[in-house]
Simulated assay, not measured.
Amino acid sequence: MPQKFVLRAAAIAAASALILAGAAGSASAHVTVSSPDAKPGGYAKLVFRVPTESDNASTTKLVVSLPKDHPFAHVGAQVKDGWKVVKTTEKLPQAVKVGDVTLSEAITTVTWTAAAGGVPPNDFDEFALSVGKLPEGVDSLNFPAVQTYSDGEVVKWEELAKDGADKPEHPAPTLKLVTAVTPVAASTEVDNPDTLARVLGGAGLLLGLIGLGLGLRAGRTRKATP
Rank of each mutant, 00 (worst) to 15 (best):
W83D: 09
Y149R: 01
A115I: 14
H74K: 07
N192W: 02
T60H: 05
E53I: 15
K167H: 13
E90H: 03
A9R: 04
D151T: 03
P183D: 00
A44I: 00
N142V: 06
L141R: 13
T109I: 09
P71K: 00
T111V: 15
S140Y: 13
A77L: 06
G152A: 05
E159M: 01
S28D: 10
E189M: 14
S16E: 12
L46E: 13
V119L: 12
L18N: 09
E126C: 03
S54R: 04
K167N: 11
P168K: 12
V178N: 11
L46K: 09
D81K: 13
L200R: 15
P183R: 00
H74F: 15
S150K: 03
T89K: 07
L177Q: 03
Y43A: 07
V119C: 02
S26E: 08
A14W: 08
K45N: 07
A224C: 12
T195Y: 15
K61M: 05
V138L: 05
K97Y: 01
D139A: 14
E90T: 06
D163R: 04
A185D: 13
T32L: 07
G201I: 08
S35N: 11
K80G: 01
A128Q: 09
Q147D: 13
V47C: 01
R222T: 02
I107K: 04
G202P: 00
F124Y: 14
S140T: 02
K68D: 08
T182M: 14
L216Y: 12
A218T: 10
T195N: 11
V178Y: 08
G22A: 13
L216S: 12
V33M: 10
V190A: 14
N192I: 04
T109N: 12
F143Y: 15
S130I: 07
V63N: 09
T108N: 09
L92G: 08
A115P: 04
P168L: 04
K133D: 09
V86S: 02
A161Y: 01
K167M: 14
T60C: 12
L134I: 03
S104F: 04
N56A: 08
K176W: 02
L129M: 11
P40H: 11
D194K: 14
V146E: 15
A128H: 14
F124R: 12
F127L: 09
H70P: 00
K45H: 13
L177I: 00
V131Q: 12
E105G: 08
G82S: 04
S58F: 05
G117H: 01
F48S: 03
G137V: 01
P93V: 01
G201K: 11
H170Q: 08
K167S: 06
W157F: 13
I12Y: 05
